[in-house]
Amino acid sequence: MKHAQKTLTVRTPEGISFPLPIATPISRFLALAVDLAVIYGAMTMLTVVLALFGLISTDLAGAFWLLASFLLALGYPIVMEWFWRGQTLGKRLLRLQVMDEQGLRLQFSQIVIRNLLRAVDGLPLFYLFGGVSAFLSMRGQRLGDLAANTIVVFHPKIPELDFDEIRPAKYNSFRDHPHLVARLRQGVTPAETGIILQALLRRDRIAPEARPALFVRLRAHLERKVRFPPEVVEGLSDEQYVRNALDALLK
């Protein structure tokens, strides 16, 4: 069963609305694991450096280690989220970002509170309180997020739009029949256009054996909307037919 992703829709006074997809507890847990690994790595390096410093003064080296481990554990997420606008290394790798619940600017106090409250979210073990809270919350908030008015959103990867992929390779014969192009535009919904566009953009990622069947189906679907004269489509492959149709739809 497909898991419905939680989203928060912000509606601006200008009448624009934009959805913010909420990060799942699993992705947040993975980001946390990356951050813990970073802290552990930094501590290991620090231990080696301080072991050398200990040759001069074991007392100072020990004190520095205690302070550094405390500051790293508590300060790493605070400093990173402040300077990287709501992201730590783990969050950046997993495309997550802490945001204000109302879409406003993230404040330093919000970052501090959500991170200090990890002390409770982490109880009794492995972020059980925080995880349960995030699962139950409509906005996927752990207790620290609830107190700080923050949410963690997921930014899906947006591939660069490659216009060459969707451009017809040669002269588009469909354009010689503007009334049919107009009827095509009338008959094809924006959602259908989106499917055609995505099929062409992702053609190289579709298995070679599945690709012809896909374009056959798309062509058949388009032909049910509008039928171009046989001399126009003669010799056009199914994929080329779909490219021409999309070109006609978009321009």
Binding site: V10, T12, I16, F18, P19, L20, M99, D100, G103, L104, R105, L106, H155, P156, I158, P159, E160, L161, T189, P190, A191, T193, G194, I196, L197, Q198
Partner: peptide, 21 residues
């Protein structure tokens, strides 16, 4: 209003979200 333009829409949504804040 144009369902096919997911990438551009997402990019603009991110920009508007940041500027809105």
């Amino acid at each position: 209003t144009f369902a096919s333009e997911k990438e551009t829409r997402r990019y603009l949504e991110t920009l508007v979200a940041r500027a809105y804040g």
